[in-house]
Amino acid sequence: MPDAVIVEAVRTPVGKRDGVLAGVHAADLSAVVLKALAERTGLDPEMVDDVVWGCVGQVGDQSSNIARFAALAAGWPETVPGVTVNRACGSSQQALDFAAYAVMSGQQEVVVAGGVETMSRVPLGAARQTGMPYGPAVMERYDHFAFNQGVGAELIAEKWGFSRSRLDEYASRSHELAAAAQDSGAFDRQIVPVATEAGQVTKDEGVRRGTTPQTLARLRPSFQENGVIHAGNASQISDGAAALLVTTPEKARELGLSPIARYHGGAVSGADPVLMLTGPIPATAKLLAKSGVGLGEIGVYEVNEAFAPVPLAWLAETGADPDRLNPLGGAIALGHPLGASGAVLLTRMIDYMRDKGLRYGLQTMCEGGGTANATLIELV
């Protein structure tokens, strides 16, 4: 079976809700990274077998198969197809899985994986305004629970015994690390500037410098009156896009491209849909079992910071080294543009691995409904 390799990974800056990227349509935002991918690699887009694109809010500006219209917005040939994937927050991580599977099976040779979300223009929950998403059988099975991620995060904090101060300490760490990464230029190579009416956007907008547990202590709980989850220790509502070019080592050589990372393996799992956000724990176990790579061999772990209890519960259950967890900050500081987040995190992780000379990187993403993706990549 052929290997699947990533030869380039790029992303836009991540904008805050109603922030610097709010005026950019999702197709146009996607086009920014698609064009950059072709320009940086010298790839003729005619050679792309498919564009596999993650997007969660597939209504309004993001309806009508955003993958297809992203490719057209990029000026790519009409012969290039596109398909849109929704596995909740893991949509573009799943897009990478699908791209890798297609290449490894020999059915396709050059696939673009990535995703987009413009949460300023398509608010979270917009798809639920026209119907009942879960259906009566599911609601009856789970005793008419509201399936609220914030409530799930509260339940996780309670189950693992995380105090509000512990969660706020973790959230402050995210901002501190993200600010340090920005200042050191760690994101510069991966970010593609986005032209807006107000000028070029080149940096992630959500980092709040000087955030401390003391400043976060002033915020009110968001989901329960005496709860521990609030806006400061949860991921930010964001806009952004990211893309990765996937092919085989042989095709890369033919095209004169140098692979950056090998897709070592992926896993997806389901867990309690009420707790909802614990899926990364079994997904990680499943991935490690099939890969034969030990957790201690892995140099960096990207565990999406949907809410602070999620990576903390993952750490508690896996026994992983906390210093290797989200070393550049995460979604609490840098934002969580749902359908793009998997590709955004992968892009950040790949660059970090290159900078530090790390062989293995593991990424896992909690998802609405209790599913989770886990992906292992190897630097080449």
Rank of each mutant, 00 (worst) to 15 (best):
V5R: 12
V7D: 09
V7R: 07
A9K: 03
T12N: 02
T12P: 01
V14E: 12
R17M: 07
D18A: 04
V20K: 12
A22C: 02
G23L: 01
S30K: 06
L34K: 06
A38C: 15
T41C: 07
D44W: 05
P45A: 15
P45T: 11
V52A: 08
V52T: 12
D61W: 09
S63G: 10
I66D: 12
F69T: 14
L72H: 07
L72K: 09
A74H: 01
G75Y: 07
T79V: 10
V80E: 02
V83N: 08
S91A: 13
S91V: 08
S91Y: 08
S92Q: 04
Q94F: 02
L96M: 10
D97M: 03
F98M: 14
M104V: 10
G106C: 12
G106Y: 07
Q108N: 12
E109D: 15
M119E: 10
S120D: 11
V122I: 12
A126D: 13
R128H: 13
Q129V: 12
Q129R: 15
A137V: 09
D143N: 15
D143A: 15
H144N: 15
H144R: 14
G150L: 13
V151P: 00
K159T: 05
K159D: 06
S165D: 12
R166K: 05
E169R: 02
A171E: 04
R173T: 11
D183A: 14
A186P: 00
D188W: 00
Q190C: 01
V192K: 03
P193E: 14
T196D: 08
E197P: 00
E197H: 06
E197N: 05
A198V: 03
T202G: 01
D204E: 08
G206V: 12
V207K: 06
L216R: 09
A217V: 03
L219C: 04
P221G: 15
P221Q: 14
E225T: 09
N226G: 10
I229W: 02
H230M: 08
A234W: 03
Q236I: 06
A241E: 06
A243L: 01
A243Y: 04
L244T: 07
T247D: 14
T248L: 07
R253W: 02
R253F: 03
E254T: 09
L255A: 07
L255S: 08
L255F: 03
L257D: 11
I260C: 03
R262T: 07
V268C: 01
P273C: 13
M276Q: 14
A283V: 09
A289N: 11
G296K: 05
G296M: 00
V300R: 10
Y301N: 01
F307W: 03
P309W: 03
V310Y: 03
L312A: 05
L315D: 06
A316T: 05
E317M: 02
G319S: 10
G329R: 11
A331Y: 02
I332K: 07
V344P: 00
M349D: 08
I350R: 04
Y352F: 12
R359K: 15
Y360D: 11
G361D: 11
G361L: 11
L362G: 09
E367M: 11
G368E: 08
T371I: 11
T371D: 10
I377H: 04
E378D: 05
L379S: 12
